[in-house]
Every structure is written in structure tokens, then in C-alpha cells.
Design a protein around this nucleic acid. Structure first.
Length: 109
DNA sequence: GTGGTGACGACAC
DNA sequence: GGTGTCGCCACCA
């Protein structure tokens, strides 16, 4: 029973270009509720049961910190990001604003 | 049906 | 500027 909010989150996450990342708040704001950032995170949690591949490793918190790395099943969320060309040090994305992909700007709703 | 929690964010102090 | 608290909505017990 995927809510439209969730589906929107998944769609946006899948639209994230390679080598780019976004924040929960950015997606939430794109959906119309910047304060619903928690729902975006929850959507990521539910994404585990989804048949689609959700590049959750491209979604980090507003600080560019890999907040959800602990929940990530992969051997290393950081490794995935580095493979994308993103520099990650100590679970912190370097040049975050440079790799930051804001749907509100890129998609220009 | 109620209460508590959660991959966060913004505002208040 | 750092810390604390509220908010937001869906899911689980």
C-alpha cells in the first residue's frame, strides 16, 4: 500500500543522476512538505521491501552525513558513493554542495 | 483506537 | 552558533 508520497519519493530518488546526492528535506520539500523529511527517511526504510532498486545511498541528511549507513545492507554505502565519484570521508560527503542534486532546482517543479 | 517510534528538518531559546 | 524541542505523517505493538 504505497502512498503517493512514498511513490513520489522513490521516483525522485531514482531520478538522481550518477555522481549526485540529495537530502531528505529536499525531497520532502519537493513533495510539498519540507517538514515531512522524516517520511522520506521512512520511505527509504520501506524501500527495502520494494521490487525496485532504490539508490538510498544517494540520499543523505541535510548535513551530507550518511545517517542511514547503519541501515544499509550493502557492504559499504560509502564505497558505493565513492564509486559514483563522490568523495566521502568519515561518513561525511565532501564538496556536498557540489554533488548536491536538488529536485526543486533540477526538476524545477 | 491509542501510543510510541523513526534513514530528518526547521524553529526557538 | 550549539542545544533543545516540536512538527510531520506512516507504520508497528
Amino acid at each position: 500500500m504505497e502512498s503517493d508520497f512514498f511513490k513520489m519519493v522513490y521516483e525522485v530518488v531514482q531520478l538522481i543522476p550518477n555522481g549526485r546526492v540529495t537530502s531528505y528535506g529536499a525531497i520532502a520539500k519537493y513533495l510539498g512538505s519540507s517538514r515531512s523529511s522524516r517520511m522520506v527517511g521512512w520511505a527509504m526504510n520501506a524501500a527495502h521491501s520494494l521490487p525496485y532498486k532504490i539508490p538510498a545511498h544517494r540520499v543523505v541528511n541535510r548535513n551530507g552525513l550518511l545517517s542511514g549507513k547503519m541501515h544499509f545492507p550493502a557492504p559499504g554505502m560509502q564505497s558505493l558513493l565513492e564509486r559514483e565519484g563522490i568523495v566521502v570521508i568519515n561518513d561525511q560527503i565532501q564538496n556536498f554542495k557540489e554533488v548536491f542534486w536538488d529536485p526543486n532546482t533540477e526538476l524545477s517543479l
